[in-house]
Design a protein around this nucleic acid. Structure first.
Lengths: 348, 348
DNA sequence: GAAATATGTGAATACGTATTCAAAGTTAAT
DNA sequence: ATTAACTTTGAATACGTATTCACATATTTC
């Protein structure tokens, strides 16, 4: 594969404009000191030659690449799709490019993280995915900051941005209790994930503080997915032997939607008259007229903003700071209660 | 911002392994000719030093960057979100990285295309977005192939991959006609876009061939979005003066979902008993139990595969071919009819 | 008008890898 | 044993931009 013969580089532009190559470089650097007439000459020549500065070469000589990597775990969950969109828009607006990696559900993201590091990205955002401590220390050795999004970890000292799962779940528990629910069913997500665990914990603890007996709280696995929740609910409700719950808490909206459809479609149950339902996240499809989920909306924009702030701070600071001490910062943001028609507004 | 002092490059690894820098490079190139013991020595040294080959530097000396840019127009439309996911997975599986750009609805994508070109990406996929002919010729000058996805254009000679909108819409028209519909309403998407235009045309033409009078076919704008369709349908049906249609064709699923919710929620109409409804795309949420849309499913996987094939072919060929003649190739793939509950299976 | 300070410019070089080329070493063939 | 063919290797260099440094010119100051 032979390379294109007539590549137009800054040298070619320089020759046409009658200046040196560094001057061409300066013409494209807003902050550089260059005479106005020379800059104009250079830009004119550049336009005439269809010259585009080579960002790859630029990244090589500069310390940063202007690329941020975003590793997305579960693209099927609209929450992460929505987050990704916002990440892209924010980064694009600040002049950076986004390298997106996808990690199959449950697989660790060491492979793609390695790829990202090779590109000397300015930072890495990890949404839903597991990463080994080897890779984390490698990234710290290379000096590339990682921030976890909607996920935290005790193992590695990593920055993380998340919504307060505990408080959010407490609100839902209280709301359902107030609406008269007495038997509860929790649909778990990834049992390993911090997010699912915290939401379950917040919900449970609140109920127990309201004197609900542990016997009256049931837990099943929903696989973090629509179909997983649909199936598990179908199975649970098909069993006539066990008393049915009168309130269901799915730890995320996409599972709550699966529950809603199973309940309505398979068992002809009305929500919330026959069974209450709540989710968590505040994803867009959950608020469509067909669902109108009761949920806790995560402040995605804020979370993204905080994530990028953390990334920038970290990449700044690790130049001064020769010691490799990473101080973990968990940014807990508050979610908003979204009353839907899935929990009755009046007490029973 | 001073650069990290102890960067570990191939030179450092070479010194530790007692070989030259090119040998390190070869150790990381599977196809390179290198003695097994040397490769092992190099890899051991690399591991010990936490060495990661710098892909940026590699891109600079090689002819290609291993990066493909994907420009996504309407991230709110699950069709494009699903497509993006597949693009990412396929490209990742073939060892390439994905630079994702987002373009605000309706805005042209010249700016982001330029950014992509600067990174010397191996190819660009443009989903839903307009691009100027200036930029197209620029990209051809630089030798970076562009392929349009789910969109075609007469202006520029560009490769394009799309689903056969005409045939798909004809099937829907025929189905609705057979089910007894006599008054039709078409909900348009982007009136400029080739996709929306073709779907409208296919639907209209088929109806006219069935001797449906033009008076019985109405068209309104749905803005390509859920809420746009929701609103426009609400407005149309609020007007009691005009006779209501008995069949609605939204040119994409996300609008069909908006229609469904407006019809059911605002006007208490049953689908399909009171009014038939069909969409186009086959997006996942449209097939949830809450909607069960009648639609034409686009073969996304195939379309993605074809798009990448075209991209690869083009980037190969333009080395031999010095003339800049690009032969436009439209790849028309067939969609699959998805019978939902939104068209009655029995004739009225 | 001379000295002190800005300002603008180009030559040289760094960034880290891949490739070319020629030399050296190794194996096969006669 | 000797030539031929092949495999490995390192020195040198290309890739295209940004930065450093020194020099030259322009502007200010007294």
């Amino acid at each position: 594969m032979k390379r294109k013969p007539n590549r137009v580089t800054s040298h070619v532009v320089a020759k046409l404009a009658g200046v040196s190559q560094p001057t061409v470089s300066r013409a494209f650097t807003p902050s550089a000191s260059i005479a106005k007439d020379k800059r104009d000459r250079v830009l004119a020549a550049a336009k005439q030659l269809n010259y585009l500065p080579n960002s790859i070469a630029s990244s090589l000589s500069k310390a940063h690449s202007n690329i941020v990597a975003v590793i997305v775990g579960d693209m099927n969950n609209p929450f992460y799709a929505e987050s990704l969109e916002i990440f892209i828009n924010r980064l694009q607006a600040t002049g950076r490019q986004v390298l997106v990696f996808s990690v199959a559900d449950g697989r660790d993201c060491d492979d793609v993280l390695m790829r990202a590091l090779r590109y000397h990205v300015d930072g890495v955002v990890v949404t839903s995915a597991h990463l080994s401590s080897d890779l984390v220390s490698l990234s710290q050795g290379v000096g590339i900051p990682i921030t976890l999004f909607n996920r935290s970890t005790a193992d590695h000292a990593l920055n993380a941005v998340l919504c307060n799962s505990i408080t959010g779940s407490e609100i839902l528990a209280q709301t359902m209790y107030d609406a008269g629910a007495r038997r509860y069913l929790i649909v778990r997500g990834d049992p390993q994930g911090s997010t699912s665990r915290n939401r379950v914990k917040g919900f449970r603890d609140k109920l127990e503080s309201l004197a609900v007996l542990p016997d009256a709280i049931e837990e099943i696995d929903g696989d973090s997915s629509y179909s997983g929740a649909f199936d598990t609910i179908s199975e649970r409700f098909a069993d006539d032997g066990i008393q049915r719950p009168d309130a269901i808490f799915a730890v995320n909206d996409i599972m709550a939607m699966g529950c809603a459809d199973a309940l309505r479609d398979v068992f002809k149950l009305r929500i919330p008259e026959d069974v209450m339902l709540a989710g968590f996240d505040g994803i867009r499809p959950g608020q469509l007229a067909a669902y109108q989920l009761t949920t806790i909306r995560q402040p995605i924009e804020e979370m993204v903003e905080k994530t990028l702030e953390l990334l920038d701070q970290t990449s700044m600071s690790d130049d001064d700071d020769e010691t490799d001490q990473i101080t973990q910062t968990d940014h807990l943001l508050a979610g908003t209660f979204v009353p839907g028609k899935t929990v009755p507004s009046t007490n029973i």
